[in-house]
């Protein structure tokens, strides 16, 4: 009964991935295999270097924002208050917004006559509008913030289930022993939610490396990421081999991250 599932995954996921790697080592004209010509081609293209750099920077900024923000919101959700139920419902809303729509929204907010500039103007921070999409670190920040808005709820859900799995009597016992709230946080909460933190971080990192829709909408063709670079090589230049090479590099990047993280930090937790 499991056969259809396994066959589908073999045929429609593993096979294409292998094909993609195959394309990347195949010469575009002579179809000779294997060759490094495609890799030489894209590494020599400054656009690719930018795409790689942008992907890494946005992943780093995005993960920091999302894990930090997610932890903060999850902690706020564990504190009992009158509006807790409402708060919880509202924090989950962005999860229900399609990624392309969150891109549209952020486009309006960060366009040069958009609402973020207007907000800054009204509180007197800026006089002239800032062009957030012009490239450089501004655009990367914009993409990271847009990504954060959309995906932090997932981090909140994962971390919250971790926080809720901590039995209350541990806190009671340590309070008896005179632990301060800071000690609570650093010596009880953090170690106990570590496995959940690991899972959330890995899931988020994979998606962050693969970021595609938001750059397509927000950054346009000026600021490329690995995903959009691979897309552009195929659609703009009709080159499946260089597109495959870019995808393969993206795959290797993800694999290196996941494996090194699992090996150094979370081997035991993920095993369970």
């Amino acid at each position: 009964m499991i056969l259809p599932l396994i066959l589908f995954i073999l045929g429609f996921t593993l096979l294409p991935v292998l094909q993609c790697i195959f394309y990347s080592f195949q010469d575009r004209i002579t179809e000779e295999f294997p060759t490094l010509a495609n890799y030489r081609l894209i590494v020599g293209n400054p656009k690719f270097g930018d795409a790689l750099k942008n992907t890494l920077i946005v992943t780093a900024i995005g993960l920091t924002l999302e894990m930090g923000g997610g932890l903060l919101i999850a902690l706020l959700l564990t504190v009992s208050s009158k509006i807790k139920g409402l708060f919880r419902t509202i924090t989950m809303i962005p999860m229900g917004v399609p990624t392309i729509v969150s891109g549209v929204i952020m486009l309006y907010i960060f366009s040069s006559n958009g609402y973020f500039n207007e907000f800054l103007y009204r509180i007197g921070v800026i006089k002239l509008p800032i062009d957030w999409a012009q490239g450089g670190i501004r655009t990367l920040l914009m993409v990271a913030v847009a990504d954060m808005w959309k995906v932090t709820p997932l981090v909140v859900i994962l971390l919250l289930s971790g926080l809720e799995s901590i039995p209350a009597n541990i806190y009671e016992a340590s309070a008896m022993d005179g632990a301060s709230p800071y000690q609570h946080f650093f010596f009880i909460t953090l170690p106990l939610i570590k496995p959940f933190f690991t899972i959330a971080l890995i899931l988020r990192a994979i998606d962050a490396f693969r970021i595609f829709e938001l750059p397509m909408v927000l950054a346009g063709r000026n600021t490329m990421f690995l995903g959009t670079y691979a897309y552009s090589e195929y659609f703009d230049y009709n080159n499946i081999h260089s597109s495959g090479a870019a995808s393969t590099i993206l795959l290797i990047l993800i694999a290196i991250f996941v494996f090194s993280y699992v090996v150094t930090v979370g081997a035991k937790e993920v095993d369970e």
Partner: peptide, 14 residues
């Protein structure tokens, strides 16, 4: 398998 980049799968598929 959800870890694989989608642009890498979508290319041979298309």
């Amino acid at each position: 398998t959800r870890m694989f980049p989608e642009v890498g799968i979508a290319l041979p598929i298309s």
